[in-house]
Simulated assay, not measured.
Amino acid sequence: MWVEPMADAGANQYTFHIEASKDVPDLCRKIKEAGMKVGIGLKPGTDVSVVLPYGPLADMLLVMTVEPGFGGQKFMADMMSKVERLRAEFPLVNIEVDGGVSPANIDQCAKAGANMIVSGSAVVKSPQPAEVISQLKQAVQKVFPE
C-alpha cells in the first residue's frame, strides 16, 4: 500500500522486510513498475536462506545487525555470516548493514561484503560526526573501490 505514495514522493528505492511481505515477487514487481529499485531486508532472527530465492529480484539486500525498532543497540557481529553468504551468492547486488555500525566494527562489515552502511547513533552521538562518516566511508572504499 505504500509503494505508489513513496514513488510519488520521489523515492528511488523501496526497501521492505521480507518478514512483512506475503508475496515477495509481486511486491518486487510493483516496486520496479513504480520506477524504484528494490531493497529486501532481513531481521537477525530470520535465516539467510529465506531471502536467497529473491536475491535476483533485488537491487539491494539489507542485513539488520540489530533488532529493528530503536537506535543505540549493540552490533550483532554474528550477522556477518549472513553478509558473507549474500555477497557470495550475489556479487553484483548491493549489500547493506544497519544497526550498531560504528568505526569500531566497520572493517568487519566491509570485509564480510557490505558495501552500503547505515549508521545512526555512532554518527549523531559523536562530537565529530563528519569524521565518523569519513571513517566509515573510507573503510568501505578500501574493500569496494569505486
Rank of each mutant, 00 (worst) to 15 (best):
P127Q: 11
M116A: 14
G69R: 01
S21Y: 04
E131R: 09
D59T: 06
E33F: 04
L92I: 02
P5D: 05
I106E: 01
W2E: 15
P145K: 07
G120Q: 05
S119T: 04
H17R: 03
S49E: 14
P129I: 11
P68L: 13
P56S: 06
L62V: 14
D47I: 00
L92V: 08
S126D: 10
A104P: 00
D26E: 15
Q108R: 09
M64R: 04
Q108Y: 07
L27A: 15
Q141N: 11
D78Y: 12
G69T: 02
Q141F: 09
P44Y: 05
K32L: 09
V97D: 02
G55M: 11
G99P: 04
E131M: 13
M64Q: 08
V48E: 07
P25S: 14
A34L: 09
G113D: 05
R87D: 13
L92W: 06
F75K: 08
L136A: 05
Q141R: 08
N115D: 15
L57C: 04
G35R: 06
N115E: 11
E67P: 01
K32G: 01
A139S: 13
I18E: 10
P91F: 11
L61H: 00
V48H: 01
I133P: 01
C28Q: 06
Q135P: 00
A110H: 04
A130Q: 11
R29F: 09
N105K: 08
A104I: 02
V48W: 02
Q73S: 01
D23I: 11
R85D: 08
T15W: 02
V93H: 11
D23G: 12
M1C: 14
L62E: 07
F90H: 09
K137T: 13
A7V: 07
Q135A: 14
L57Y: 10
P25L: 13
L42M: 10
E131Y: 08
I31P: 01
E67N: 15
G55C: 13
V97L: 04
A11M: 13
D23K: 10
S126V: 05
V140P: 02
G99E: 08
T15L: 15
P145N: 10
P145D: 11
P25M: 14
K32H: 10
E131A: 14
V66F: 01
I117Y: 07
K111V: 12
V140D: 03
V140S: 05
R29M: 09
C28F: 07
V97P: 02
S134Y: 09
S126C: 06
D59W: 03
M60F: 04
Q128W: 02
G120I: 06
K32N: 02
E146M: 07
G10C: 10
I95V: 14
A122P: 00
G35E: 13
A9L: 12
